[in-house]
Each structure stands twice: as structure tokens, then as C-alpha cells.
Nucleic acid binder design. Structure first.
Lengths: 261, 261
DNA sequence: CGCTATCTTGACGCGAGTCAATAGTGGTGG
DNA sequence: CCACCACTATTGACTCGCGTCAAGATAGCG
């Protein structure tokens, strides 16, 4: 089956045949993960309950309803987190790129399917082990708590997007987010690689494939982006995109109290 | 200005002139809060950085952009958490009822306005003090972490609602959630009291006041609910509502792997 | 009792979904 | 190497649900 590109350097795909299996000390993704700047003792303890797992593009890591035996951090590749409703409606709650922690939840069961967009490698942690470690090392739990708060911020911004933005605005916001995320991965150019097909973008932004396509065309017509390939987006007018995505600035905003009624 | 009812027993409104200012040991809302079942030492420490704050209906507790000097727990009444976009579009991210913790966030600034729907009393905690306490008492941080995860679960469900449900389904889900929340407050009847006007429901569910009104009428016509007063909803057919709100069961679901494609 | 704000209901229009046709793309096999 | 196939993406025509606008009903408050 034809999938989006595998050749995204930003996503830390395995290069020159190198193995995914590497010691944490060599982990290139670590600066992005919750385990960054953990003291050596905690690092070692964490490593003792960790193992590497590879998921091939298109296959499923966990299914909605599975017991939460493990939690994960993406180290290379890209995943999607999906809710499928009984009648076929679908929602992609989030995409997970390197550094992202998967499945913060209160439930003891997974609430979403987690599927690989590209060949992906993850750090897998035994859930009970993680809970135990959090008790032993409050510092670790603190880091996870921080991450959860960050995800909450993002989730709430996404609500605003879903509830109040029109398709073009949603797409602008999505592209900006992806750009920021890929920049964090070290690839700070304005050429984006989309690791997901249009259908996933649609289900992430609460619209249809056709509308995604039309909105992309709109952005291209307005000279805000270029689309050299299906899975590649060049940002031509960053301020223009930001102006469209009203909420994007608020996301970064720190204190500057904007205009109010 | 005419506001929704003040006489909601579920919301722990102050009764027979009693003062809000009560010792934690007497706090009726405590079983619902993150501070439930904290050991006495931690309870005392927490109390030392806490104070009671009252916000009158219609007034604002914090504004988007304010520095996060305090965090809060609602002890009586109801608040709304609001994002106002520059062009007037509005999103009510959440309603906060007794027991709810306000403003989990990574940002050092508030990202939303928080306004009182009814006269509301809160426990106010100095933010820096709370951070310090979390370091001293990992157990406390653990409780907060749990809460944050719970909020994340809820946020993600709300995304599905905003992205993929139609107005009637959204309203059904909303009423069920409210019923569950009021049940947790001890009022387990099927008579709901809405502490917010239609406009807030609309902005919470990503629709307009008119559509909220029409959808309520639809539910009434289908005999799923009755509307004896503007701010009161009687649930006549619980299973019927649950059937409408497809995602509602998934929210409670624990392991039962439903039908999939 | 009348003012004002909210809520409800109706008529209408637009934007996004649906359906359908075409173009593009990548993989496979002759 | 090229032709074919399957799938995805794009574009257009049409439909319909929800938003917009407007009028009337209801309720709280002075």
C-alpha cells in the first residue's frame, strides 16, 4: 500500500542501516523526551524497565480497549492516535512525533488506537514499572506531569480550532504546528514533510479529504504555501499563515494581553 | 443582568446564611477535590498556603494573559473557562463545578479567562507555594498528576464531540456529562439544573445559541427530555440519550472492545 | 408595569459535506 | 523499461445542515 514518505530526516528515520537499538546515552531523541535531563540514577532505573519496539508503517501498536500494560515514547517515525466510532466516523486525536509520550490517561485501558504512519521506533516502558519508578523518583513524575500539562494546553487549543476555525484557518494552524514540531526536531527549514495522508489530516481537523485538498489549494493560490510534491509543503509566507491561524499566536503568547471587547 | 439560577443545591451554594469560610476538615467539597484523602501532614501544609476567595456571578476571576500567581479549586458554585478570539469568536473550553481544579497548564500565564456563572467560592493556592509543596510532598503532585490525566481524557473526548458529532448528539452528550457531574456532587436525580445560559452551552459545544435552542426542542419532541423551566432539564429517557451520544459509552468503557470495521 | 436581556421559532443563504469524474502516484508484472 | 493497476489526491457540481437574520415569546428586575 502506498504510504507517505519514509525519507524524512526530521523524523530520525534509521540512517545508513543503523540499528534503532541504542543506549539512552546515545539517543538522539532524548533531548525532546520527558527523560531529558534526568539525573543518571533515574536514567538507569528508567532504562531498566525500557525496551525498544519497532512498528512498521500501517500497523497497529495498541487498540482501543487494550489494557494499558505499557506506555511509550516515540524515538523515530510518526504515529497517529485514532478514535473510531461505531458508525465509521473517525477522529485523529493527535499525531505523535519523536519525543512525544503516548497515552497519558487515567483509564487502565487504552482509549484510542495507536497506529504507525511510517516505520516507527519507540521506547516501551512497563506501566507498573513506570508507576513504581514515579514513586521512587518524584523528579520523574514531575517531568511527566509537566508533559501532561503541556498536552492539556495543546488539547485545549485544538478544541478552539475544532469549534471555531474555518477549514483554511485550521489547515494554516496545522501546518504551523507541524513546522514548529519539525523545527524542534532540528529541521528548521520552511520545507515541511507530511508524514500522513490527507485523510488523517482531515480526521485530525474535523473535516473531509475533499475540504483538506481544497483548503490546501486555497493556501497555494494565495501564495502562502507551495506544494512541490503531495507530501511536501513549502511555507512561503509565514506571517500570512500566522495571521490566518488566529489562535496560533495566543498559543505562544506569554502575557501580552491582546485586544478584548 | 438576569443570570441562571442561584438555587442549585448540587452546587453547594451557601445555605442558611452560612459562611464560605470553613476549615478543610469541614469542607463538603473535599471528597471531590484533589486534596481528598491526603494525609494530615500534607493537608495542613496545603491549608497553610490556601485562602478562600469569593467571586460573584458574572465577574471575572482571572484574565487571559494574567500571570499565574494562584491556582484554584472550586468549592461551591460554577465557573466557565473562556477563550475570546480577537474577532469576537468565543470558545468555552470547560465549565468548572465543585471539586474541579482550575488551570492546569505549562504556561506561566493564564491562557483563558475564568468567569463566575453563579456566586462561587474557591480555594486559592499560591502557585509558587504549590510548586514547593509538590516537591516536598510527592504524594500531592501525584494526585494533581492524576487529575491532569483525567482532564486530558475529558479534553480528548470533547475533541471527538466537536469534530464529529452533530448538534443533537453534542447536546445529548453535554447533558449526560452534566448529569454525571451533578450526581458526583450528591444530587443523583434526573433533574438537571443548568448553571449557564444558552450562549455558554453554544460556545462550549461549538454551535450557536439558535442551534442549541433548536436541538433542545428536538430532544424534547423526541421525548428524551422535558424542559419545565429554562434552566432545568429533566432526563426522561437515559438510554435514549446515551444512544444518541455515541461517544458517551466509550468514555466510561473499560476494556470492552466494541465493534470495529 | 414596563424595560431589557434571553430564549425560541421561522425564513433564508452559504459553506462545507456528498457524490462523481479526472488526474496523479507508486508498485507490480509482463 | 514500460504498461497496467490500485489507491490517493484534486477538482467540479450539487445538496443540505447549520449559521445568519429577524420577529415574537418569556422571564427577571427596577
Amino acid at each position: 500500500m502506498p504510504w507517505p514518505p519514509y525519507d524524512n530526516p526530521c523524523l530520525f528515520a534509521p540512517q545508513n542501516g543503523g540499528s534503532f537499538l541504542e543506549h539512552c546515552a546515545l539517543c538522539r531523541t532524548r533531548p525532546l523526551s520527558f527523560c531529558a535531563v534526568l539525573p543518571p540514577v533515574e536514567m538507569q532505573a528508567l532504562e531498566s524497565i525500557a525496551s525498544t519496539q519497532i512498528v512498521l508503517a500501517g500497523s497497529t501498536l495498541v487498540r482501543q480497549g487494550d489494557p494499558r500494560r505499557y506506555v511509550y515514547t516515540v524515538t523515530a517515525g510518526a504515529m497517529r492516535v485514532v478514535r473510531l466510532l461505531p458508525d465509521g466516523r473517525r477522529q485523529v486525536t493527535a499525531f505523535a512525533l519523536p519525543g512525544n509520550y503516548l497515552s497519558f490517561s487515567q483509564s487502565e485501558y487504552h482509549r484510542y488506537d495507536i497506529e504507525a504512519l511510517t516505520d516507527t521506533s519507540l521506547c516501551r516502558f512497563n506501566y507498573d514499572g513506570m508507576v513504581a519508578l514515579c514513586t521512587r523518583f518524584p523528579h520523574l513524575e514531575h517531568k511527566l506531569f509537566e508533559r501532561a500539562c503541556q498536552e492539556l494546553d495543546e488539547a485545549r487549543e485544538h478544541m478552539v480550532l475544532l469549534a471555531r476555525m474555518n477549514p483554511t484557518e485550521r489547515l494554516a494552524d496545522f501546518l504551523l504546528q507541524l513546522a514548529a514540531q519539525q523545527a524542534r526536531c532540528g529541521d528548521s527549514g520552511n520545507i515541511l514533510t507530511l508524514p500522513m495522508p490527507r485523510a488523517d489530516i482531515a480526521d485530525h481537523l474535523g473535516m473531509t479529504v475533499e475540504t483538506v485538498s481544497r483548503s490546501l489549494s486555497t493556501l497555494r493560490t494565495r501564495q502562502l504555501i507551495a506544494l512541490p510534491e503531495t507530501y511536501r509543503v513549502v511555507i512561503l509566507d509565514l506571517p500570512g499563515l500566522k495571521a490566518l491561524s488566529i489562535s496560533y499566536d495566543a498559543r505562544e503568547a506569554t502575557g501580552t494581553n491582546g485586544s478584548r471587547r
